[in-house]
Simulated assay, not measured.
Amino acid sequence: MHDPLNAFALGGDVYIDGAKTGPLAGLTFAAKDVFDVQGYVTGAGNPDWRRLAEPAKHTAWAVGTLLESGARLVGKTHTDEFTRGIFGDNAHYGTPDNPRAPGHVPGGSSSGSAAAVAGGLCNLALGTDTAGSTRVPASFCGIYGLRPTLGAISMDGVLSQSNTFDTVGLMADDPDLLARMGEVLLRTKIKDAAPAKAVVLEDALEACDPAVAAAFEAALPRIAQAVAPVVRGTRVSPVPLSEWIEHQNAIQGREAWETFGEWINLSNPRLGFEVADNFLRGAKVANRTLSAARGFRLRAKRWVDAALAGNTVLVLPTTPVTAPPVHSPRSVMWEIRGRIVSLTTIAAMAGCPQISLPLCTADGLPVGLSLIGPRGGDALLLAAAKRIGKI
Rank of each mutant, 00 (worst) to 15 (best):
residue 388 I to G: 02
residue 375 R to C: 11
residue 75 G to A: 09
residue 17 D to C: 09
residue 284 K to T: 06
residue 274 E to G: 03
residue 374 P to Y: 01
residue 65 T to V: 04
residue 339 R to C: 09
residue 249 N to P: 00
residue 224 A to V: 04
residue 85 G to M: 13
residue 95 T to C: 15
residue 287 N to T: 13
residue 317 P to G: 00
residue 241 L to T: 07
residue 241 L to I: 10
residue 185 L to C: 09
residue 137 P to Y: 10
residue 182 G to N: 04
residue 83 T to V: 15
residue 322 T to L: 05
residue 227 V to A: 01
residue 374 P to R: 15
residue 375 R to W: 07
residue 366 P to V: 09
residue 211 A to T: 12
residue 218 A to C: 11
residue 182 G to F: 00
residue 318 T to M: 01
residue 220 L to Y: 10
residue 245 I to A: 09
residue 213 A to G: 00
residue 131 A to W: 04
residue 60 A to K: 02
residue 149 T to V: 00
residue 92 H to S: 15
residue 198 A to N: 07
residue 226 A to F: 14
residue 2 H to T: 15
residue 24 L to R: 00
residue 52 L to P: 01
residue 95 T to E: 09
residue 230 V to Y: 11
residue 15 Y to G: 02
residue 63 V to C: 13
residue 93 Y to S: 07
residue 84 R to H: 14
residue 57 K to L: 13
residue 158 V to R: 02
residue 349 M to W: 04
residue 128 T to C: 08
residue 306 A to P: 07
residue 205 L to H: 03
residue 60 A to S: 11
residue 307 A to H: 08
residue 132 G to P: 06
residue 149 T to C: 03
residue 217 E to H: 13
residue 350 A to Y: 06
residue 383 A to D: 08
residue 146 L to I: 01
residue 132 G to M: 13
residue 221 P to H: 08
residue 376 G to H: 06
residue 195 P to G: 08
residue 213 A to W: 03
residue 160 S to E: 14
residue 132 G to A: 14
residue 299 R to V: 02
residue 15 Y to E: 15
residue 282 G to F: 05
residue 3 D to V: 04
residue 55 P to D: 14
residue 45 G to M: 12
residue 65 T to I: 02
residue 43 G to V: 00
residue 70 G to P: 12
residue 313 V to Q: 09
residue 366 P to L: 05
residue 152 A to M: 04
residue 5 L to P: 01
residue 212 V to D: 01
residue 241 L to G: 11
residue 105 V to D: 00
residue 227 V to F: 03
residue 355 I to L: 14
residue 86 I to Q: 06
residue 162 S to P: 03
residue 324 P to I: 04
residue 257 W to H: 11
residue 246 E to Q: 15
residue 115 A to D: 00
residue 95 T to I: 13
residue 211 A to K: 11
residue 54 E to F: 03
residue 150 L to P: 05
residue 229 P to Q: 02
residue 321 V to A: 12
residue 104 H to R: 15
residue 15 Y to R: 15
residue 352 C to D: 14
residue 292 A to Y: 11
residue 132 G to V: 04
residue 373 G to T: 12
residue 283 A to K: 15
residue 240 P to C: 08
residue 1 M to A: 12
residue 255 E to T: 03
residue 309 A to K: 15
residue 246 E to I: 14
residue 324 P to S: 09
residue 314 L to P: 01
residue 241 L to C: 10
residue 98 N to T: 09
residue 192 D to N: 13
residue 276 A to S: 13
residue 131 A to P: 01
residue 125 A to Y: 10
residue 81 E to P: 08
residue 385 A to K: 03
residue 264 I to Y: 11
residue 278 N to E: 12
residue 351 G to W: 07
residue 213 A to S: 14
residue 238 P to S: 13
residue 347 A to M: 04
residue 285 V to C: 10
residue 327 H to W: 03
residue 384 A to W: 07
residue 200 V to M: 10
residue 116 A to P: 01
residue 203 D to H: 00
residue 160 S to W: 00
residue 341 V to Y: 08
residue 329 P to L: 11
residue 350 A to D: 12
residue 158 V to P: 07
residue 350 A to K: 09
residue 360 C to I: 07
residue 132 G to E: 12
residue 349 M to C: 06
residue 213 A to P: 04
residue 68 E to K: 12
residue 347 A to R: 07
residue 381 L to E: 11
residue 323 A to H: 08
residue 337 R to A: 13
residue 196 A to I: 00
residue 289 T to F: 00
residue 58 H to N: 09
